[in-house]
Simulated scan of single mutants.
Amino acid sequence: MRRWSLRRRRRGGRRIAAVIVGTGTALMLSGTPVLAAPNTTDVSLVYCTSPARRADLVAAVAVLGLAQRGATPDRILADGRDQSVEEWRTAHRDQFDRACEALIAARQHDTGAAASGGGTSWWSIIGTALVTGFLGWFFGALLAGAGARRLEAENLRLASIAFVGASQRLVRLLAGKRPGAPPPDDEVHQCRNALANALDQAGGRWFWRRPRQLRASLDGPRFGPAMTQGWWEDDETERRRDQLVTDLSRLGSEIERVAQALQTPARPHPGMWRE
């Protein structure tokens, strides 16, 4: 009877131990903390380095006199070079912690939160970290999209400037050229192709009519290959030159409107839909 009772107790103890180990393992795998609360330093790091807070962190760094603002709102000028928040944090961990704590304290002051935080539940800290992480991802995606739109607008703007400038220079040369070998027009054709590709991309992505109309004008009689032809059969070269220079300037202004619309596609742009 004693042996049976001892075996039964041992089996019961093993079962209890197995339940405890299994429960702890499941909690660990599910990411649920058992004894320890989340590290507040990690929470602060997630908060201060999130894309939605980087500009505020850089502002706090500048106000505290720890470093200067960089080339963009989310970069820091320190040690004689423009660097990211992560690079600056690696080199100046104490200063980063100071600026981050000041940013969090200012946020709590603005929202009327208590400075002590003694009764704050670590579940609320986890929830705040998760919400902050999601918002950081969301606004990071928005910023990435805005960066792509700015790059597309800048490429279109540069292509327009190159084509208009090369065309105006060549037109002036053609108007004053005596009969003989004409000046080369290879640069104009190359710039026209680059501008046509940029307008195709803008018109195809946003389904706007105006970029497609401007793209079609590059193949027309005004800005197409015929623009550099027939200057010696024309008796009014100066008048043609002046008109073309003016028309090219207007073309550059119209393309600049398209570039500005690309940077802010969420705003209404009725001019992009006109026939």
Rank of each mutant, 00 (worst) to 15 (best):
E233L: 13
R81Q: 08
L64Y: 01
G12F: 02
S121Q: 08
D110T: 12
E238P: 01
S253R: 15
L45F: 09
Q263Y: 02
P265W: 05
D110R: 15
R10S: 11
E236N: 13
Q229M: 11
I76P: 00
P73W: 02
V164M: 01
A194N: 10
L158W: 01
R69D: 03
T23E: 10
W88F: 11
A175V: 02
S44W: 03
R150T: 13
T111P: 02
T40Q: 13
S167Y: 04
P182G: 07
A17R: 12
R205Q: 12
R209G: 00
P270G: 05
R150I: 14
A226N: 13
C100V: 01
P182C: 04
R209H: 05
A91W: 09
G224M: 09
D200L: 10
F223H: 06
V21S: 08
G12C: 06
T120I: 12
R257G: 01
L130Q: 14
G13D: 10
D79R: 13
D56N: 15
G13C: 12
H109V: 15
A106F: 00
I20C: 10
E254V: 01
G12D: 06
D97C: 04
D97Y: 09
A181T: 11
D42F: 06
T246W: 04
S253V: 03
A146Y: 02
N39P: 03
H92Y: 08
R274T: 01
D110M: 09
R257K: 07
T228Q: 12
I125S: 08
G80Q: 11
A129G: 07
A162Q: 07
D94H: 11
G133H: 11
A144M: 14
S121V: 08
L27R: 15
W4V: 15
G127W: 03
T32D: 09
D242A: 09
A194H: 10
D186T: 13
I16E: 07
Q260M: 07
R54E: 14
A115S: 05
I76V: 08
Q108K: 14
R212N: 02
A115T: 09
E86H: 07
A141M: 10
A26I: 15
E275P: 03
D110W: 10
A259R: 00
Q263G: 01
P183L: 15
P265S: 08
A36P: 01
L35Q: 04
D79K: 09
A113C: 05
A144H: 07
T49R: 15
R169V: 11
W4S: 12
S167M: 10
I104V: 15
A37F: 04
H189F: 06
G133I: 10
R178Q: 12
V258L: 02
G112T: 10
V63S: 13
E86A: 12
L170Y: 01
L170M: 08
A141P: 00
L244C: 04
R54F: 00
S217R: 15
G80T: 09
A99W: 00
V164I: 10
R53L: 09
L262A: 05
Q68M: 14
E101Y: 06
K177V: 10
W273F: 06
L174T: 04
G31F: 06
P184L: 06
